[in-house]
Amino acid sequence: MPTSSSGLHRRARSPWYNYLFTALGAVWLLIAFYPVLYMLMTSLRSQQGFLLGTPWLPPLHPILENYLTVLQAGFAHYFWNSVVVSVVTVVLVVGCSLLLAYVIVRTRNRVVNVVFSVFLVGLSLPIQAAIIPIYVLITKMGMYDKLIGLILPSVAFGLPLTVLILVNFVRDIPNELYESMGLDGAGEFTVLRHLVIPLAMPALVSVSIYDFIQVWNNFLFPLVLTQSSASRVVPLAITSFQGQYTMNVPVTMAVVVLSALPLILAYIFGRRYLLRGLLAGFGK
């Protein structure tokens, strides 16, 4: 196995244990990836092929019919709902967080410190702990079963981590840069637009990806706050298709594959960005 010469702690000649590591790595490859492969293979089977064929082998006659069935049953609409909810939520979360992060970093004030501490404590506040009053609140506001009713609480629960990551990043901007802009008499928004946003761009991209994935995959809010197919989002579409096609596993697997479409595409075309986004600020 050719190895890179730059790795100081790796030899050009592989010792015996490296083969063992590779073998164990291959075992994990099977465990981690095979279920996904199974999902993909099954989604390409006919119902009959699923019942009669060997489940662990690729289908003999792969078909795309299941995907067609799913699309004809309104999946595109659910997908669009998810896109709207996710994109609007991300824009609101990142926008609000950037403004707050800027103030937290640039202001020395007790109130601001308290606000930041509250957001820090809010970091590991489970959505589940607040879902009951949120349900009552959204119902009273007349937003039950509407996309806006999903967006508003999603924004609130996206804020803590986003604020933390952006504070971390905005703080790394050298003070001199602020001062030189201040001397030019630049206002807060000029500083934000011409200094903070350009320099914090990598963090803004990562955190947007992270927030998008959180909202895209969120299940509890839509489960509790929506009901009709008009406002159904992708995670609920999976369970409703599963309920509808109980006996038709290939159709369910097609929904599962489609549910991850934006992330699959992002992984194929921008793996580095997606992985960095998934890690958010944790890897720092």
Binding site: W216, N217, F219, V234, I238, T239, V256, A260, L263
Partner: peptide
Amino acid sequence: PLLFSAVA
């Protein structure tokens, strides 16, 4: 596996 939701 990171690409899929808990529901999926």
